[in-house]
Amino acid sequence: MSTERRRERIDRPIKAVTDDIFCLSSMREIAYLVIPRILPIVGLLLLGFLVPTYWRKVIVITFIMGMMALSWDFMASCGLTSLGQALFFAIGAYSSAAVNHYLGLPIYLSIPLGTLIGAIISTACIYPALGLRGIYFSMVTLIIPLMLMRVVETTGILGGTEGITGLTHFPGMFITTTISMAALWATFFGLRRLIDSDYGHIFVALKDNDRAVEASGLSIRWFKVQAIFIGSAICCFCGAFMTHYYMSVGMSAFAVDLSIFPIAASVVGGMGTLAGPLLGAIILGPLSEALRTFGSFRVVIYAALLGTFIVTLPEGLFPYLARKYQQIERWVEAPGGISED
């Protein structure tokens, strides 16, 4: 007679009342809930302001890439799997550069204006492809930035191959870091709140079953337009910010790397969780910088790490950690598992 056991998973008994109302009885429980929320905010503050100057630049770029990843994850949650975040980035970059260079508007106007104009142009660019789904939509988003890059190159508009240079710079590193960090958190919490609202549920439903959305009397296309607008506005801000950060904009804004990074970050961190892509970006950004010492071989190491990661932990880092944190596992005797012979 043998006893069979199974590993049981139960939620930590913290959420005592409902999902929204916590019933806390000790400092330990308060700490249990608060620490995972405070830790990343404090961590990024320390990271942003205390590291040496060279690394601070890396951190700023990481923040911006984190926003790109958030934007990609948001769009993917709406069923719009984009392979061309670079398109939105470049459109934002060029819009803000044009406003700053040709109209002479100051930086505090050119970034918001660039974001807005960029988002409108981006949405207009993608609009014809909104009827497409899955791989077709992805293909279109992949093609458009490559095409626009050559358009800029051959026609010489917006500075052509030279790009637009001599743009206004941010007043200082402190302000740069502050703005990028504030924007990152605003995007993160904003998107999370949006997704959790009734309005945001429609976006998530678009991915789940767009026919059911249509059957509820909502226009799929109109909501997709809104999703693209929100997603591309975030990337356009990134573009506008980086333009002023580098004081120039060029064809490199269309680079495929910018499209790939958000996807890699989302896959590493865990798609569809928002916190996951952010975590992924914070890991991958500095990592790819640290690997620079290996020269061009760094791509191999980077790719190998990424591949290993995806194969061994396909659910993503964040869902894995969250599960381990929130659940207790223990062996229990399986009822009915006692064999009779």
Partner: peptide
């Protein structure tokens, strides 16, 4: 198991 979803246990 691979995607960290629900755990299925089979006995008998």
């Amino acid at each position: 198991d691979r995607r960290g979803g629900i755990r299925i246990s089979i006995f008998g």
